[in-house]
Design a protein around this nucleic acid. Structure first.
Lengths: 353, 353
DNA sequence: ACTCTTTTTGGAAGCGCTTCCATTATAACA
DNA sequence: TGTTATAATGGAAGCGCTTCCAAAAAGAGT
């Protein structure tokens, strides 16, 4: 009777299939796992029965026996606001999800926004037998705890974004310093001489690095950094708007914003002040979001391929899962400066070139 | 020796803890699961050892024994573009993730955008022992297959958004018809007499229902629906822009867009045509995205609490997981019309009231 | 037909946990 | 102190799979 019921509810076991096919449990397992040493006709008979009954091996049992779950965790620490405000996260998520599909891993998602979340979530992440490895989006001070604990557990780990303590951890990131530097240098080349920057939170590595790139570019081109031309933002549009308002009295003629979203807000502030883009103020953002064209002014930006970032992190994690001896390493992806209408054209530089 | 190694790598088993504490495996299990019948001092001793060794029971073993994974799946069918373009998805995701944290469930995410994805993903979703239940975001024709198969498998299921075949399926949604109707009626009350609508894809239940609400409102107030004032969009900003361009020749004085993102695009089209909002054209969108204020004109909108949608769907799913006898039911959440600057003020209606 | 290989097969152990059931220690009461 | 009721404990089976190992079947070579 059991078998009859199970036929419809789809809760057969290997044994049921074995009985139905007149072979041993072992043989069915071999068929399921595509082990070569099963006779052609037997394999086919078993496959037919599996098909007919829509049998799927029980995931927990398989995980327990193989010590492999084919599941990876993605830990996204974030403030409530930024997650759906800045397309960076959805984008990264998509890249990672697609990569998981590609490699036939399942993705477990952990959104942690509060300390409480962290406490709740960690046991589930750390528990053996559930995750084969984890990806954590990082770059903030608060993340160190989670990362450290994963490392302690010897769980394969990839960090997206340079963590503060990056020794002995595999991470994938872009070269934020270089990218920022090239953006600012471009502004300089278009003739801007009072280039301001709206930074990310200064307790994050992105914030720090993009600012550092700005400083380096200014020093190389202009000689001296004017601290009044630096305003801290928080990666939100409002943050960008407010930062720009602080900057305006110092009459910047070019702004490098550490994210497109902030650039967007900043451009509003500029327009509200009745200035024109790019005639009065040029803009370069960071991210290359599709929606980052404010009104009809297309925003210049540093393009980072977030989907690629996701793909690489998954690949690198799987590598670690499948080969324990892999050493931590850093993967740095390229960025590209994309110039659109928010910048004035390059100045001819015959003399200095 | 094994024990020593395991101490650091955190891969102890119940047996190890039992040995260390001088009790049986069973007792340790009881402690872990907070079973009452364990003597106080024994419990404490075991807890100490668990704490000391950072022991976490193996998830797969536990799942296998209990036939419960405490994991639910979220299946998000989506075109690549909309996922990170329309904040609806991230928002829903966040609501669901937060609810999972709250109830101590783990969330497995399945982003399926292609037929191929679906084929790859389904075995993982359908496999017993991995998921206790699933939430699928729906409303498109293509989703019926997946939903049907889950129902066949007798896996607890909640659909977000009214599915095409809604009999025998639990779903949570808002009353799109009513919500759209109220928005259009409001436009009418502000004096609009040529109200247009930009619909969602017409092969989706949201698309259909919001359009139906529009039709009902027009019929009730204006008598006759003018088909030229209906344009189909695809929930993207560009789609909204293009739809609006088709609409403009017919001189609408009010537009109800089935999403804020489309409204945003449409408003651009209006401005590009040198018309003014709300003087020439009033706008009401749908969603109430925080970023849906175009330029300085705040968009009126139908607010739906997507986070709540997520919460309810998780709660309803858990209900089904924990009680097999629960019957399918529909949960309809309220919406709220939020009027901002994109609408003209209400006309005095002394006579007709 | 008879070895010697090589390929297929199945039995059984084991993955790490929960839980039923029988047993023992403890408390309660006479 | 002896009985009985109750609480605490451990043994063992079982969850559904993989995989080692030995045994059986099939080919190959004479």
């Amino acid at each position: 009777m059991k078998t009859q019921l199970d036929h419809s509810s789809g809760n057969l076991t290997l044994d049921d299939i074995a009985r139905l096919a007149g072979v041993s449990r072992t043989t069915v397992s071999r068929v399921v796992n595509e082990h070569p040493s099963v006779r052609r006709d037997v394999r086919q008979r078993v496959l037919d029965i599996i098909e007919e009954h829509h049998f799927h091996p029980n995931a927990a049992a398989r995980t327990l026996a193989m010590q492999r779950s084919w599941t990876i965790g993605l830990i996204l620490p974030h403030s409530v606001s930024t997650f759906f405000t800045d397309p960076y996260y959805p984008n990264l998520l998509m890249g990672i999800a697609k990569a998981c599909n590609l490699y036939n891993y399942t993705l477990a998602l952990f959104l942690v926004s509060t300390k409480e979340d962290e406490v709740n979530v960690f046991p589930r992440v750390g528990r053996k037998g559930f995750l084969d490895g984890a990806i954590v989006q990082s770059g903030h001070h608060g993340d160190q705890g989670a990362i450290g604990r994963m490392v302690d557990k010897k769980m394969p780990l990839v960090v997206v974004g340079r963590p503060f303590r990056s020794d002995n951890v595999t991470y994938v990131d872009i070269d934020n310093i270089k990218a920022a530097k090239s953006a600012v240098t471009h502004l300089y080349k278009t003739g801007c001489r009072r280039i301001a920057t709206i930074t990310g939170p200064i307790d994050s590595t992105v914030g720090i690095d993009r600012l550092e790139g700005y400083r380096q570019a200014i020093k190389e081109n202009n000689g001296q950094v004017n601290e009044s031309l630096i305003a801290e933002g928080n990666f939100t549009e409002t943050g960008g708007y407010l930062a720009m308002q602080k900057l305006l009295p110092f009459k910047p003629d070019g702004v490098f914003a550490a994210s497109d979203v902030m650039a967007s807000g900043a451009m509003k502030a500029v327009e509200d002040a009745n200035l024109h883009i790019p005639e009065d103020v040029s803009f370069i953002g960071f991210d290359d979001l599709p929606s980052a064209s404010y009104g009809s002014i297309q925003l210049s930006t540093v393009r980072q391929n977030v989907t690629e970032l996701g793909l690489k992190s998954v690949e690198s994690l799987i590598e670690q899962i499948e080969d324990e001896s892999i050493k931590p390493r850093q993967i740095i992806l390229d960025t590209e400066l994309v110039i659109k209408q928010s910048c004035r054209p390059l100045k001819e530089l015959h003399k200095s070139e």
